[in-house]
């Protein structure tokens, strides 16, 4: 018996701008097709602080953006350079403590401490990670996971940098609007900056390191140098988020090396869709507020949180953004076979 079988057919939308690399902007229709999704994201992020009720939720958005920066940095390293880095917390902690020192000891204002801590912190993190860069895959992941734990224990055991109490008395931002729009602006800047970077020539080399590092060596390029540049960029994002975090909390402590900063960005990347760069941001916009909402449930929070994560992984394993992009760029229809 022959059963009537159907399958879903997917057809790319016949619009020039979609064809990879050739940006033929021929009409308003194509321009809007290209610009609207980006505009929705940018404007949406910018008006979010205005529409949210109360300071509590505005603070949640700030924290979301800080996690989003980390998630974008994780996505960049994992999907465009091939380094699965679990050391996000190390970047945050380094950036945080540097900011704290620059602010309390040298008395620099936040406008100076954040860029300085970003650059110094990124250099420091890159230098410290340099010996592990020849490692690949799960080995690099494990070693990079060790760094934040190591830093935490060193500060605790030697009682340096304020020990378990941390460093207090750090300046906050001028007001909460500066705080929010600065963090949101930085996040959007890095999001589009990294997207641009991975499509530039050096970005292609990064992707080459991920796909086939032997061919990169055979082309006369030192893989370690390119990995170091990539780690510097990712660490800069991590350190910057740490620097902002410290100014928001007006306190820097060993909890900045907590594994939350390593794990939550990864979960956000999985949910949002790895390799899209926007996905991790979307993932953070989903996960961080959910995590806040679930606070009412007390210790059951982790259970619900895990259930939501499992649900996403089982039913939308490709990630929200990949799914969304497919729906946006392709027609779907059923055909009989």
């Amino acid at each position: 018996m022959i059963k009537d079988q159907r399958r879903k057919e997917r057809i790319d939308r016949g619009i020039k701008v979609r064809s990879d690399g050739i940006y033929a902007m021929m009409s308003w229709r194509e321009l809007t097709y290209l610009v609207i999704p980006r505009l929705v994201l940018i404007i949406g992020m910018l008006i979010l602080p205005l529409v949210l009720p109360g300071m509590y939720w505005q603070r949640v958005i700030t924290i979301t953006c800080i996690y989003a920066l980390l998630a974008i940095s994780f996505d960049f390293l994992a999907h465009f350079v091939g380094l699965v880095c679990l050391g996000g917390a190390f970047f945050v902690g380094t950036g945080g403590y540097l900011t704290a020192i620059l602010n309390t000891s040298l008395g620099l204002p936040p406008l100076l401490t954040i860029p300085l801590a970003t650059l110094l912190g990124a250099s420091l993190c890159t230098l410290l990670l340099l010996p592990c860069l020849p490692l690949r895959g799960v080995f690099f992941a494990i070693v990079s996971l060790m760094y934040p734990l190591f830093a935490m224990r060193v500060i605790e055991a030697l009682d340096i940098l304020g020990g378990t109490d941390g460093i207090i008395g750090i300046d906050s931002f001028a007001n909460r609007w500066v705080e929010q729009y600065m963090v949101i602006g930085i996040t959007l800047l890095f999001l589009f900056g990294v997207r641009r970077l991975v499509n530039m020539d050096i970005g292609l080399v990064f992707r080459g390191v991920k796909d086939n590092d032997q061919a990169i060596r055979a082309s006369g390029m030192n893989i370690t140098i390119f990995k170091a540049i990539a780690v510097f960029i990712a660490a800069a994002m991590g350190c910057m988020s740490g620097a902002c975090l410290v100014h928001i909390y007006m306190w820097s402590g060993i909890s900045q090396f907590a594994l939350d900063f390593s794990i939550l960005p990864i979960a956000a990347t999985v949910i949002g869709g790895g390799g899209t760069l926007v996905g991790p941001l979307i993932g953070c916009l989903i996960l961080v507020p959910i995590s806040e909402l679930l606070r009412d449930f007390g210790t059951l929070r982790i259970v619900f949180y895990s259930l939501i994560l499992v649900g996403f992984i089982v039913f939308r394993s490709e990630g929200v953004m990949v799914y969304g992009q497919r729906k946006y760029h392709q027609f779907e229809r059923w055909t009989r076979i």
Binding site: D20, G21, D201, I202, L204, V205, R207, G208, D211, N212, Q214, A215, I216, S219, G220, M221
Partner: peptide, 18 residues
């Protein structure tokens, strides 16, 4: 093992960067 995700000509951008 080419750089599978890239178009053929973009594969050459990488060695041309060396």
């Amino acid at each position: 093992r080419p750089y599978y995700s890239l178009p053929a000509y973009k594969n050459l951008v990488i060695p041309l960067f060396s």
